[in-house]
Structure formats: C-alpha cells, structure tokens
Design a protein around this nucleic acid. Sequence first.
DNA 1: ATCATAAATAAGAATATTATTATTTAAATA
DNA 2: TATTTAAATAATAATATTCTTATTTATGAT
Lengths: 151, 151
Amino acid sequence: MLEPKILVRLKKEGYKLTKQRQQILDVMLQSKTRLTAQEIYKQLQRRELSVSLDTVYRNLKLLSAIGIVQQISLQSGALYELMQEEHHHHLVCVDCEKIVCISACPVMPSYLKDADAAGFDILGHNLELYGRCNDCRSKRQLRKAEKCVKD
Amino acid sequence: MLEPKILVRLKKEGYKLTKQRQQILDVMLQSKTRLTAQEIYKQLQRRELSVSLDTVYRNLKLLSAIGIVQQISLQSGALYELMQEEHHHHLVCVDCEKIVCISACPVMPSYLKDADAAGFDILGHNLELYGRCNDCRSKRQLRKAEKCVKD
DNA sequence: ATCATAAATAAGAATATTATTATTTAAATA
DNA sequence: TATTTAAATAATAATATTCTTATTTATGAT
C-alpha cells in the first residue's frame, strides 16, 4: 500500500523498512487530517501493533528530515502530515493557529547549491510561515474601534 | 541597547516591551553562541531578574513567529539565535547535528503573495534544511568499505 | 498623574518529547 | 538458509515544553 517512492527513498538513505515504520506511514496515509504524534500512537494501539510512543516520535523526526513527512509546529504541539503529490508548505495564524497550505515551494535547486557547497547531502527541508489571519486581524482592530466609539 | 528595529517591530504588532522581554533579548544579544531556552533562563537568573521558564518559552515562540529570533530544531531540543544583520537560514546534519548557515533566503515577496492571497498578514517564517555532512557521509561509506575489505 | 484594559507574567500542574540501555530485527552476504 | 551487524525498538527514566489560573504591568486615553 505504501508509495514505492517512499520505499525507494528509505532504502536509498540506508534506513530499514520496519513493521513499525510501515504502520506509522500507513496510519498517516489513511488519515484525512493532520495528526499529532499522540494521535498516531493511539491509532496504532487500535491496530494492535506494538509501537512505543518513542518510536513514533523518532520516526516522525526522521521522516521529516528526509522530506517524506511535513511537520507543522503549533503552540499546542506539532502536527504531522504525509507529503503527498505536491510538495508544499504551511502558513499558520499566530493568534488562532488556523493553517493554510501554500502550494508553491521557494526552495529551488539554485538555493541548495549553497548548501551543497558546504559539503552536505541535502535530504529535505521544512518551511513554516507565520502570520495573522483575516479574522484575527479584524478582531484586533475591532477592539481598538470599540474603544474609540465608547470614548 | 536593543536595536530600535526590534522595538519598532514589537510595537507595530501591538506587543508590549516588558522587562522580561527586554532581558531575554539582551541575553541573546550578548551571547556569542546559540542558546537553548534553558540556557537563557539560567543567564537571567544570574542577572537576578525574575523570569519564569514559561515566559522564556513564550517569548521565544513569539519572537520567532515575527522574525526577530530564529529557531533551530535539534534532536536534543531547540536552539535560538537573534536575527542579526543578514537574514539567513540553517542546514543541520541529521547524524551529528552540525549546523551551517546558508546566507541567502529563498522566501521572496512573490512567494508571499500567495500567502497574502489567503488574507494573512505575513509576520515571519522559519526555514530549516536537513542533510548529511561530509564527515558523516564518509563514516557511512567507510563502514561499508571496511566490510568489503574484511570479506 | 490617574485610570482602564489588553497583554504579559509566575507558579505549579500537566503533557509532550527525548535519553539511556538492553534487546530485537531487517537486510546484506556467505 | 544461516550468519552477521548496523539500525531500530521497548521500557522507563529524565527533560523539555505547554497549560491553567490568579495576579501584575505596559500602554494608551483621560
């Protein structure tokens, strides 16, 4: 069921395809929503596969580093999603934590050349944008406006 | 002592310039190295200013979101550095956690337009690159080579 | 200078995340 | 198929990070 692309990627970097790793990926694949590490852990328990929470975290970190999984850091902890078809990034509202996908990716090969120059093999990257959404901006301005009216 | 630029930025976004916030920024300004939240907290205790660890974390998060501070996520936790002169990003070795600065930034205004389109005010961003450094790559290959020799 | 108020803080409890170490396992090769 | 070994895992202990709530404070307006 796993994308062959993912298998190839893991093998290429010398990582093993363990049962646990497969199941973690599968849970993410099945999920319609972004998940926390804890949620993935709970799903796995339902499936009766023995996976420690530690293993979930370890794998999410690894998979993020090599670009198979995308991590989104919120106040309340991190969310993870499987990188499907199109590579993309996320914009998070600093007030309400609303998340919006930004479809393009600005990290071009030319940019990675600098990194190569440092002698690194580039495996992946994570870009998160922060901002304030329309609603939250309005609310802020409303507060100021109300005050003026009252005065 | 604080860069006026930072003060302007905070005020513009409606954030207060508290003693604690000032001191956190000052500790980072004085430091020659990247610091963990805990290290910043300890520095502040030496200065005899009352700042809770919670406050340190809260501020680092806020300051990262609006681009005044840069966060670097390592296995062992996060490091923080004040964004000085030139905006830049970091490349981290997934094996040894060596950090290298990449001077340019690929996040151009044109890219941010997409974000604007979603009705967001963009405040900042965080980009982290992952790779494997020269040394770690060599070590991996050595292991394989040794095996071949032995055989 | 005083007042009003949203923003910020401290304290301590609750969670999330990582480290350590002994054991197990995938995968390469004989 | 059996052997070998780096990689991966589980268990649990240790840290790091966040939440909740009551209190304090910076700031803008009087």
